[in-house]
Each structure stands twice: as C-alpha cells, then as structure tokens.
C-alpha cells in the first residue's frame, strides 16, 4: 500500500498546492491581462455583464484559490520538514533550497494578504456587494487595482522561487 506512505501524501499535497495555485494565479492574470484592460473598450450598457456576473464569480475562485494555496503550501512545508528554516529564509543553514522556497513562501504570503485584506474588501465596494459612496468606490478601485498589479509583479519572482526550489536549488 504505497499510497498510504508519507512520500505519497507529500506528493499529493504538492499536487493540490499546484492545482490551487493555478486556480489563484490563473484568475489573477485573467484580471490583469484580460478583464481590466478590456473594461474601457466595453460599451457602458454591456459592462454589467462583467461587474454583476463574471467578476464576482472570478473573485470567488480567485480568493478561495489563494486560501487553498497557502493552506496546502504550509502543510506541504511542514510535511517536508523545512517550514521553520524556510520562514527564516534558510539564513544560517547554508541550504539554498530552503532560502529559495522561503522567499517563495514569503512572496506568496504577501500576495495572499493582498488578496484577502486589500483586493477583496475593496472590490466588494467597487462591485456594489457592500454599499459605498462614489468617492469611496473610486478610492477602493484604486487600492484594489494597485494591490492586484503588485501581485502580478510579485507572481513572477514568486514562481521563480517555487519552481527553482523544486528543480534547481
């Protein structure tokens, strides 16, 4: 019964971590590469299709993808025994793998924080899920937009650290 062994479960959590990560970063890139640049080109009467239907559904899978990614990632790091070394960026351990995965984990954690504490609360105001004055909506849109762009920027080195730790360092 090989599949009940620790190496199998570690592999299974890595698989779930990658699935969740694709759900998260796929939506992040959809927002930044497709939806946001397309909004100014969409006629006003068609915009509610995005704001009332597509964006709320995309945001649901986006934020819960982020949650599943961090939870499975922390479990995985714990199972692999490098959680505490990685949190300390492998400093003093002379272990390039733990330094690389540690940077990936910190970048991912900052991105998870941005999703749940900056993007989602502000998007709720923008989309009218919670009531907000027009000025407040504008400000919320600016904060959510910049946090989303920050995450797009951070996703590039984060993925280098994650993939590099698995296959190079």
């Amino acid at each position: 019964m090989e599949f009940v062994s620790l190496p199998w479960w570690t592999m299974a959590f890595r698989w779930l971590h990658v699935i969740s990560g694709i759900m998260w970063i796929g939506h992040l890139w959809y927002f930044n590469f497709v939806q946001t640049p397309s909004m100014p080109k969409i006629p006003d009467e068609q915009k509610p299709a995005i704001t009332k239907f597509i964006a709320p559904t995309a945001l649901f899978w986006f934020r819960w993808g982020a949650m599943a990614t961090i939870v499975t990632g922390l479990i995985l790091a714990g199972m692999n025994g490098y959680l505490s070394s990685a949190i300390k960026l492998g400093i003093g351990d002379h272990n390039p793998h733990n330094t690389a995965i540690g940077f990936g984990m910190w970048l991912g954690t900052i991105m998870w924080f941005n999703v749940w504490f900056l993007i989602w609360p502000n998007q709720k105001k923008v989309l009218g899920i919670v009531p907000a004055q027009p000025d407040e909506k504008k400000r919320a849109g600016r904060i959510a937009g910049l946090a989303s762009r920050t995450n797009t920027m951070l996703s590039i080195p984060m993925l280098y650290a994650m993939v590099g730790a698995g296959h190079y360092y």
Binding site: P37, N95, P96, N98, R149, T150, T152, M153, G164, Y169
Partner: peptide, 30 residues
Amino acid sequence: MKNPLDSLQSTVVLGFVLTVVLILLIHAIA
C-alpha cells in the same frame, strides 16, 4: 510621477527585474 504599476507592461518588466534581485539574494544568503 506616474506609478509604474499603472502600466501592465511596466508591471511585468518590474517582475523580471525583481526576479534578478531575488536570484542574487538567494546566492548571497545560501
């Protein structure tokens, strides 16, 4: 000054620049 994150292109370029910084940091620490 314009925020570089207002441009998708600058955002991606900054992501690659940060990756170079990250590579140097990993080598410096490990």
